[in-house]
Simulated scan of single mutants.
Amino acid sequence: MSDTTPLARGPVAVATPVVRDGWELDARVATGPLTLSDESPLAKVHVRAPFDGASRAALGVGLGRTARGDLGTGDVLVVGSGPGEWLVLGAPGTASALRASIEQRLARTGEFTTVLDLTHGRALLRLTGPTAARVLAGVCAIDFSDAVTPDGAALRTSLAAVVTDVVRDDRSGVPSYLLHVERSSGQYLADALLDAGRGSGLEMTGFRGLG
């Protein structure tokens, strides 16, 4: 197989394509402080388990919060995305191994759980910059101030009329939000955010990953 042949594409249009880890990514590098990137190539594993049981302890985080860790596949971000629901994000190409690792870990709890790989069925955007909260306020009524939604907070709400998991995951002290939606809504949400952030200089940039 040629290493220039993409195996998968994210839902957001790519201006400058490059192939990495089997995905067609955007190689653009924004020069401004406020950026939006398509992070859909990240592995996305969805977990359902009892709300407050042994599985919660095994995953290391409760509702509305996030935690970094290593579940056997390298650095991952575990998100308490809903009552009895978790979203686990990992590096591109690790979804199968990540799912197997989570299943093995949760099997030891004795609880009934489901673990699904949603990588290709969901979109994931990252909005980063000092004024990112202002852009989100243009498409949502939630208070994204540091006091209400600090770094490490997670919630499910509506952005531009699209049900979205919003995960605050700051980068080097700069506010940053991961936005997890159905794949079919990815381009629409990206366009809505770019429109809301036009006055603030929001630019599309290339894939950034979890690191």
Rank of each mutant, 00 (worst) to 15 (best):
residue 187 Q to W: 06
residue 199 G to P: 12
residue 180 H to W: 13
residue 148 V to H: 06
residue 102 I to D: 06
residue 165 D to V: 15
residue 123 A to C: 15
residue 154 A to H: 07
residue 98 L to T: 00
residue 205 T to S: 15
residue 38 D to L: 00
residue 174 V to E: 07
residue 96 S to N: 09
residue 44 K to C: 11
residue 171 R to L: 10
residue 75 D to Y: 05
residue 76 V to N: 07
residue 95 A to I: 01
residue 83 P to C: 03
residue 182 E to G: 15
residue 113 T to Q: 02
residue 149 T to C: 12
residue 109 T to A: 03
residue 137 A to E: 13
residue 143 D to C: 10
residue 68 R to H: 13
residue 35 T to K: 09
residue 46 H to V: 05
residue 144 F to M: 02
residue 177 Y to M: 05
residue 134 R to Y: 01
residue 97 A to S: 14
residue 189 L to Q: 07
residue 168 R to P: 10
residue 8 A to F: 13
residue 159 L to S: 04
residue 104 Q to Y: 00
residue 10 G to S: 07
residue 72 G to L: 05
residue 47 V to F: 03
residue 145 S to A: 14
residue 115 V to R: 03
residue 172 S to P: 00
residue 167 V to D: 01
residue 46 H to L: 12
residue 17 P to T: 00
residue 57 A to T: 15
residue 80 G to V: 07
residue 32 G to L: 04
residue 87 L to W: 06
residue 70 D to N: 15
residue 138 G to S: 13
residue 139 V to Q: 08
residue 211 G to H: 04
residue 150 P to V: 05
residue 11 P to I: 07
residue 13 A to F: 05
residue 121 G to E: 11
residue 10 G to P: 09
residue 49 A to T: 03
residue 136 L to C: 08
residue 23 W to R: 01
residue 36 L to D: 06
residue 188 Y to L: 10
residue 53 G to S: 09
residue 186 G to R: 05
residue 191 D to L: 13
residue 57 A to V: 14
residue 96 S to E: 15
residue 15 A to N: 07
residue 32 G to V: 01
residue 179 L to M: 15
residue 141 A to L: 12
residue 15 A to Y: 02
residue 119 T to P: 00
residue 12 V to P: 12
residue 184 S to E: 13
residue 123 A to Y: 10
residue 42 L to Y: 04
residue 84 G to I: 01
residue 61 V to S: 03
residue 15 A to L: 12
residue 26 D to L: 03
residue 36 L to G: 09
residue 140 C to V: 08
residue 167 V to P: 01
residue 195 D to Q: 15
residue 3 D to M: 12
residue 205 T to Q: 12
residue 52 D to L: 13
residue 98 L to K: 04
residue 143 D to T: 10
residue 55 S to M: 03
residue 176 S to Q: 04
residue 75 D to E: 15
residue 68 R to K: 09
residue 19 V to Y: 09
residue 196 A to N: 05
residue 125 L to C: 10
residue 111 E to T: 06
residue 201 G to P: 12
residue 106 L to C: 08
residue 85 E to G: 05
residue 166 V to M: 06
